[in-house]
Amino acid sequence: MTPVIQTRKLSKWYGNILGLSEVSLEIGPGITGLLGPNGAGKSTLMKLLTGQLKPSLGRVLLAGEGVWNNPALFRRIGYCPEHDSFYEDTTGRQFLDGLLRLHGFGAAEAARRTESALRLVEIWGDENRLIRGYSRGMRQRLKVAQALAHDPEILILDEPLNGLDPLGKRKIIRLIKELKAGNRTILVSSHVLPEVEALTRDIRLLHQGKIIAAGDIHDIRDLIDAHPHVVALRCDRPRKLAARLMEEPHVLKVHFGPDGLLTLETDNRDLFFGGLPALVVELDLEIEEITSPDDNLQAVFDYLVGK
């Protein structure tokens, strides 16, 4: 099956400023997180994917079709821009209704879709207020509503969680996860890594205009050989355990934290964890916790982007 979103050597310059450089991507159905530091090219990529920008080089294919200058395809795409762009003196309802009419829906259908989308993001109830009076969270939810009101199969969401309070975030995260069920392809960018982790494990990491990592977070972590894996252990006799572990060649470093936390570095997690249960039994240890502090998105990001 061909991927829903595909780019080939996609590049974009603004004058002599680099936006993207030779980005080749394949994204299938489900949720994919798009990450990167400021200026990495996330918004540029999203605008290229939604046909708002013309690539300097390369192509974007959505569902096998070129997206540039292909309005028929736009009906199948939902886009949530990073920055607010509303007609401040319309109500939320008029705004969404107008956009749906632009998509070509009849008056009755547009009204129905407006209501269901606004209900979905819980703005129904304030639908007749002017957008000028909306809080930041409501604006954000309205942007999400306009992205999905026409029921697109491809959703491109640029920082949809920005400015929301924790409850708002939770709701939108749940909403996005529900949307996934309809076999949609959803690309979400965010600066807050734990929020991305709550959404998906499948990420694309952009840096300096290039894709520097693609795939499952844990698989990516395993590929980073430059940084040995860190394991943190808490048990009743940490030094006893550490003494035995130091005999193992795959254990590179042992560190005793101030609060009794034993931190180890290993270059072979399979060997390390494979032997650990037997060792626990042999030494008769009371294990309180085992964690991998650098097996998360933050660590992957720091290692690859560099601090």
Binding site: R269, D270, F273, G274, L276, P277, A278, V280, V281, D284, L285, E286, I287, E289, I290, T291, S292
Partner: peptide, 19 residues
Amino acid sequence: RKKVFRLAAEDRTQIRHFL
């Protein structure tokens, strides 16, 4: 809790996270 680790050792299962 040791029983859990004993089971893991017998079954050659890696416990990578325990909290």
